[in-house]
Design a protein around this nucleic acid. Structure first.
Lengths: 202, 202
DNA sequence: AGAATATGTTAGTATGCACTCACTCACAAT
DNA sequence: ATTGTGAGTGAGTGCATACTAACATATTCT
């Protein structure tokens, strides 16, 4: 018979399994049976820890939200130079996606966006928070003259958010054949040099 | 009893229903029953026209591929000015997304990417084709001095593809509260001015 | 050691899914 | 007007799913 674990540990294992399998199988196709097999217990055991599948997804969402918020806080603690802080923010985001590749598909899954209204609002708040961080840092850069005045700050923020999403998609479609963080930061530097309006070194 | 239609018309109706419902319900959650109700026939009738659900998805993919290719061809016929051609290409792509909002989610759905290998390759080819068009046009722009030499053409193409994906996502999440094509082209102009290295008019 | 508890299992249920089969009848050509 | 064709139906099948209830035992507390 299998080793029994305290509920707290098992719950964490289950959430981890969902994150792993959401990437492999897809968030909207993931079944409680898949999760149970991955964890190594019976399907019924999942329901001892989470009363419904929706509750399980809520726990997964909460775990993601905590991780993201922590990563952003750490990035914001990076010095006072706005360009370095921007790099830290974007780098942290890319790092989160690299370690949890299911993140984008979960964020856009119908599971979260259609079924679970409370969680959807939670994530909307997160996205807004991230964009606020970006906008604030871009404002600092503008104050230092590191931004062409012709580029509106909200447009710049939109371009940066797109950059992250776009490279994450390319990384996924290309079977993760390159270093997401390194390539993302390289592209970010290209874009930031363009924002600054001076030519980068060849 | 319901009006009977020739198979060709009915098949087109079914494909149209899938495109509509894939947006509303999600590609991976769409059932043959949903489709049948939308069309106004019984579930069994769907299987008279398409032997399996996978075959139905293949038809949907084919329809999308034809539309995209046609839109790109039309855009490429736009004059010889590379910047205008780029605007036409991106505008066509945004227009396609605006009229078929399910497009991005279908392109990234597990239905297409996991189950239907043939169709996945078909779409991969489409994406490559689009990027080739972009790269060629960017090359023309560079030849006319409308691109800073510090920006590699493939990086520029990656940034433009990201721009389209990013604004499409924002449009979707924001309940389509703005004109996707107009806003996308506006952002494109901001980015192209940055590529050119001269300030845009305020 | 023995009782209490909580983590697990076995064996279900109801529902929804893709898909099938025997059959009906609307329509078009003769 | 008759008839052949094929679009459409009603009633199913088998399977997967989320979830449940009764029971079992590993672990912990005393």
């Amino acid at each position: 018979m299998l080793r029994r674990k305290p509920a707290q540990d098992r719950k964490a294992e289950i959430v981890a399994a969902v994150l792993l399998l959401a990437d492999r199988i897809g968030p909207d196709r993931l079944t409680t049976n898949d999760v149970a097999q991955e964890v190594g217990v019976t399907q019924a055991a999942i329901f001892r820890h989470y009363p419904t599948k929706a509750a399980l997804w809520a726990a997964v969402g909460e775990a993601i939200a905590l991780r993201l918020a922590a990563a952003w806080q750490e990035a914001l603690a990076t010095g006072t130079d706005p360009r370095r802080r921007l790099r830290a923010l974007i780098g942290a985001q890319l790092q989160q996606i690299a370690t949890t590749p299911a993140l984008p598909s979960i964020l856009h899954s119908r599971e979260l966006n259609v079924d679970n209204a409370a969680l959807r609002d939670r994530f909307r708040g997160l996205v807004v928070l991230f964009q606020d961080h970006l906008a604030a840092t871009l404002g600092d850069m503008a104050a230092r003259g590191a931004m062409q005045p012709s580029v509106r700050p909200d447009d710049a923020a939109a371009l940066l958010v797109s950059l992250v999403q776009g490279i994450a998609i390319r990384w996924s479609l290309g079977s993760r054949g390159f270093d997401l963080v390194a390539e993302g930061l390289r592209l970010l530097d290209v874009q930031l040099d363009l924002f600054a309006g001076h030519q980068a070194l060849a």
